[in-house]
Amino acid sequence: MTVASDTNGGEIRQLRPGLWETVNERYPGSMITKSDFVPLATLSVPLNEARVTFVSTAGIQPRGTMPFDTVHPVGDYSFRRVPSSSRPDDLEIHQLKYPTFGAERDLNVIFPIERLRELVSEKVIGELTPDFFSFIGYNMDPERLERTLAEDIADAVCEQRPDLALLSPA
């Protein structure tokens, strides 16, 4: 287990430090290797005042928008904005690489859009950003992923000024 200190001197533990090596064995060169330890950011406002956004690799998108390119052999490096006010019926899933059986019955199991709205109404969190963000996880060019998709999403997220971003792999 990798251990580092945060800015307050607290101990931060990196869980599953062998994960990258395991993935690299199966898909050589597919992982982005970072030698720098990136500490978790600390929340700067109380949770019940925090503006929250959600970023997911679940391949969720508003119905009628261009489907994610699930067939391309090297992946799709675009993302979709998903209005946080969307009803699950307004949304659909386009991806090939994770079981969607449960998500087709209740989208919240993979993209908890209604649960997060409930947390706002219960004043557990402050508010939601106007949009959430989604892309597909099958992206086999890590340099392009980092240079384009990650940067594009980061810019789009920052424009909506969240205090807290939930990042969820599918």
């Binding site: 489907p67 699930t70 899933i93 991806q95």
Partner: peptide
Amino acid sequence: KSGEWIHDGRV
């Protein structure tokens, strides 16, 4: 078209 879909999701 084959009706035998092994993938978890859809295109």
